[in-house]
Design a protein around this nucleic acid. Structure first.
Length: 936
RNA sequence: GCUCGGAUGGUGGAAUUGGUAGACACGUUGGACUUAAAAUCCAAUGGGCAGAAACGCCCGUGCGGGUUCAAGUCCCGCUCCGAGUACCA
């Protein structure tokens, strides 16, 4: 009876589905454990071998925890809103919901055949109206909240209104728009209802604002900062320009400090925490106001505010630089310099973000003709503009300290501006002195003689006294733009009355996506929802009605933007706890039972997107007492990407002739991706297959090697459909079985490391499973005996229990596969056939290779699934070595061997130190003594 | 530039707190079985020296130093590779 993996896997997958083996209950006497994967976007290409890597790891851990007696929640779902389905809809007219449904079906089949222990009864889809109903609801909660900095938490806007009515806005310390003008209680009561709404919008955690956004013309939408890589869109690689648009924003900046501090509370990798820290970008310093010496400018606008991390170097300021986009540039420029300045502003505006980044080294700028007054020395300092100052960071203006900042130094050198050295005994003739520690400030009035820290504190103190500055902490983290000009996303539950946004009440949610004829933006440049003919809100009937009915009295226009991809994924972990709940996004009982995710596995590409946003929403929902936890994921592991090995054929320049890799020499060739399935293990191309692959190659000629073979070039790249290097798991499952795939993916290397996919070693893992099967089937028939196991077999078993358990706890799944191999080899050599050993071994391997384990478990006479089996207990006593020799040496000259004898009955260790031949000569024939040691 | 990782045989990778480097697997070579192939099983496999064999010896974890009885592991200084981020004041 051989290892018939196809039959076994089919049987057990069916059994699990029919018996709902992995269904988790929301109450149990057992301790809970929540293992979650980052849910996939169901793309049309289906699952490739890279996708399951993390799922296999989490599945092993989930199954392991079940054996350890935990009530495990291990759900799966789909992040099913997204661009590809919409792009496909634009091309074909097929509704994205249909495409998505088909793709999900395919994903599910592929996931099922790998044998994951997901609780599918809790499946979620972000594009399901019953799901996005709650995404819309959370949006409304954000709209109805403001951030009270004094309490360090979000509060209902209704409370803010009470405060405004009672005492005005002067005592309010809120995270809000920068342009709020304070008012008294009397002032508040004097506002019209519209004015009140406008005021409140400046405080809400999600707000409408005209913001400069990253607009991608090719995609027809705005992108968040984390969706742009090197100045081009993450998806598609299209250029991105800056554009002003009215957009919904999320006031994530209110949470910057908590997002930073709470990183210390969670068990994530240091590199991931570091990414988030960099992204939040906290810098501590001061804001300083400089007075412009120009009678042209009225007194209110005479101040230039800058942010600096080095207020201690303020005496080193010899000029100021403004970003070309800075508001004051137009106002302060003197007539003599106007022409030059305007020309410069225009050139920089024309340069795309990309050009500006590519060209970091060249220095450019112009003098405005204006001067500012130094707050301490009262000297006149020239005001320049330069594109090294970014409008988007700080105040868009800097106080330039050439002696202490390299960029200021380079700028000063380039334009021959004055450089004032304020460091004691430091040579700045070649470069700026940027170090903080160990330098002493000089030539700086009352700051002279002080070191960095004292000088900084004193400078801030004196600036505060003069009313020209204060200590300030700046964050790089910007508020997140939350509008997308797309069709296939969550509609905002928003309609507009006199241009002011109004929320649709909870009981009328979900606001479903309307049908549209075209998925492109409208001719007038509105988002795709502008194509919908039924997209207006009747406030009396509480229904979506025809646009023709809009009268701005009872029927109002609905929001045309949709939410970004990260909306639905920011809170999905909580929905799994209570998937079907129609009254709440999660019931308090379910959330309190499951708390948050104990183990989260996914790719590191979400470091500054999804992982930051979902921390933000979790904290917000905690503030508003909808949750009892303020972090979504306790522990997080990033699985490394599985890369593809692309194959290249080389076409001679201008001809339809392909030359084998080794014959190219110095001829001009164009490398072209060939489908990896057309190439064998020796890198030889299936020429006929290649000709039939694509019509343009059907007439191609080939210059081959001596034996008539065509050798391709190889390169490791990201696995992608467009590179023709995708390997699907289906074929592996059919040829070797899911258990082999699971163990092989783990065997490939450390989980967190990126590695190329390579099937070369898969036979090793497959052979192991065959050997394992054989161990339970000596002579071909199932044959496990009830006899007492040998000491050696027990030793092998317990060694394996110990190592494999440690490995699972440390997520070193690759070494545990090796451990299993050693174990089976040893047991086979010992001719082990005893239940005492083989039964616990089946449980041990069940998380890794669940199908074979189930089959063996059944043969061992168990009625119930192996999932209910208890994890074997490691017993130390089997691992005691009777005698082992450890070499030891002194001075590198004398060599001894230490012999250790352990006898548990005597609770003593006998240590014999044995000298080798040379050492014995050096000792003059004396033998070292034996020592008896009592452990402990 | 900055931050964080990493570098071990022909290949993927093992190696608890510093304690016999190269586990396990692939590949390669040889052998058994077979008419043959596949499958399976056995043996060898870091490099070098020596030898009929056995016992051995030397060198070896990117490079150069150091600490230590002992370094892949710790410290100092480099080189290269990967990831993230970038005129962040």
């Amino acid at each position: 009876m051989s290892y018939d993996f196809n039959r076994i896997e089919e049987d057990w997958q069916k059994y699990w589905a029919e018996n709902q083996t992995f269904r988790a209950e929301n109450d149990s006497d057992k301790p809970k454990y929540y293992v979650l994967d980052m849910f996939p976007y169901p793309s049309g290409a289906g699952l490739h071998v890279g996708h399951p890597l993390g799922y296999i790891a989490s599945d092993i851990y989930a199954r392991y925890k079940r054996h350890k007696g935990y009530n495990v929640l291990h759900p799966q779902g789909y992040d099913s809103f997204g661009l590809p389905a919409e792009q496909y809809a634009i091309q074909t007219g097929q509704h994205p919901a249909l495409t998505t449904e088909q793709n999900i079906k395919r994903y599910r089949e592929q996931l099922d055949q790998i044998g994951f222990s997901f609780d599918w009864s809790r499946e979620v889809r972000t594009s399901d109206p019953q799901y996005y109903k709650w995404t819309q609801w959370i949006f409304i909660q954000l709209f109805n909240s403001w951030y009270d900095r004094n309490r360090g938490a979000a509060r209902p806007v209704s409370e803010l209104e009470e405060i405004f009515a009672a005492e005005g806005s002067y005592g309010v310390n809120a995270a809000c728009d920068e342009d709020v003008v304070p008012f008294t209680a009397v002032g508040w009561s004097g506002f019209s209802p519209e004015e009140k709404q406008e005021q409140l919008l400046k405080y809400r955690l999600t707000y409408l604002a005209e913001t400069e956004v990253n607009w991608c013309p090719q995609l027809g939408t705005v992108l968040a900062n984390d969706e742009i890589i090197n100045g081009v869109s993450e998806r598609g690689g299209y250029p991105v320009i800056r554009k002003k648009m009215t957009q919904w924003s999320m006031r994530i900046s209110a949470y910057a400090e908590r997002l930073l501090q709470d990183l210390d509370k969670i068990d994530w990798t240091e590199s991931l925490k570091e990414s988030q820290r960099n992204w939040i970008g906290k810098s501590v310093g001061a804001s300083v106001k400089f007075r412009v010496q120009s009678s042209e400018v009225n007194e209110k606008e005479r101040w230039i505010e800058v942010f600096t991390t080095r207020p201690d170097t303020i005496y080193g300021v010899t000029f100021m630089t403004l970003a070309p986009e800075h508001d004051l540039v137009q106002k302060i420029t003197t007539p003599e310099h106007r022409e030059e300045v305007e020309a410069y502003v225009q050139t920089t505006a024309k340069r795309s973000e990309r050009e500006r980044m590519a060209d970091v080294k060249s220095i450019s700028g112009v003098f405005t003709g204006a001067y500012a007054e130094h707050p301490f020395t009262k000297e006149s300092i020239p005001i320049w503009i330069g594109d090294y100052v970014l409008a988007g960071y700080g105040t868009g203006a800097v106080m330039a300290v050439p002696c202490g900042d390299q960029r200021d130094y380079d700028f000063a050198k380039h334009f021959d501006l004055h450089i004032r050295n304020i460091f004691e005994n430091v040579d700045i003739s070649e470069e700026a002195c940027t170090g903080k520690e160990g330098t002493v400030i000089a030539n700086s009035g009352s700051l002279s003689g002080l070191q960095y820290k004292e000088a900084m504190n004193k400078a801030i103190l004196e600036l505060e006294k003069m009313g020209q500055g204060k200590g300030k902490t700046n964050y790089r983290l910007r508020d997140a733009v939350f509008s997308r000009q797309r069709y296939w996303g969550e509609p905002f539950p928003v309609y507009y009355v006199n241009g002011l946004p109004q929320m649709i009440e909870k009981e009328h949610l979900p606001l479903r996506l309307p049908e549209v004829e075209k998925y492109l933006p409208t001719e007038t440049g509105e988002p795709p929802l502008g194509n919908a003919s039924h997209w207006a809100w009747n406030v009396q009937t509480k229904e979506v009605v025809s646009n023709a009915a809009i009268d701005h009295k009872t029927v109002f226009p609905l929001e045309l933007n949709t939410m970004p991809g990260w909306a639905g994924s920011s809170w999905y972990l909580f929905r799994y706890m209570d998937t079907g709940n129609e009254e709440e996004f999660v019931s308090p009982e379910a959330q309190q039972y499951w708390e948050n995710v104990d183990l989260y596995i996914g790719g590191s590409e979400h470091a500054t997107g999804h992982l930051l946003y979902s921390r933000f929403w979790t904290k917000f929902l905690k503030d508003r007492e909808y949750l009892t936890v303020d972090e979504p994921f306790k522990k997080l592991i990033n699985q490394g990407m599985i890369l593809g090995t692309s194959a290249f054929v080389y076409r001679l320049e201008g001809e339809n002739k392909f030359i084998s890799k080794n014959l190219i020499g110095d001829q001009a060739v164009q490398p072209i991706h060939a489908d990896v399935s057309l190439v064998n293990a020796s890198d030889e191309l299936d020429i006929e297959g290649f000709k039939n692959w694509r019509p343009e190659f059907s007439e191609a000629e080939f210059i081959t090697e001596a034996e008539g073979e065509y050798v391709v070039g190889r390169e490791v790249e990201k696995m992608s459909k467009s590179k023709y290097n995708v390997v699907n798991p289906d074929e592996i499952c059919a040829n070797y079985g899911a258990d082999t795939l699971r163990m092989y993916e783990m065997f490939l290397g450390p989980l967190e490391q990126a590695k190329p996919w390579n099937t070369a070693g898969i036979t090793g893992v497959h052979n192991f499973l065959k050997k394992m099967w054989k161990l339970y089937h000596p002579g071909g028939e199932f044959g496990v005996t009830e006899e007492k196991a040998s000491v050696d077999s027990l030793k092998t078993l317990h060694k394996t229990i110990k190592k494999v358990t440690e490995d699972v706890e440390n997520f070193s799944f690759n070494t545990s596969v090796s451990t299993f191999m050693i174990c089976v080899n040893e047991l086979a050599a010992q001719k082990c056939d005893q239940r005492e050993v083989l039964e616990p071994l089946a449980v041990l391997i069940a998380p890794y290779a669940p199908h074979i384990a189930e089959e063996l478990w059944k043969k061992l006479g168990h009625e119930e699934s192996i999932t209910t089996a208890t994890y074997p207990v490691f017993e130390e006593k089997y691992l005691v070595e009777s005698t082992k020799e450890y070499p030891i040496s002194f001075n590198g000259k004398m060599r001894f061997t230490m012999e250790l004898s352990l006898d548990l009955s005597r609770e003593e260790v006998e240590v014999a130190v044995l000298a080798n031949e040379k050492t014995r000569q050096q000792l003059g024939g004396r033998e070292p003594k034996k020592v008896i040691v009592v452990p402990g």
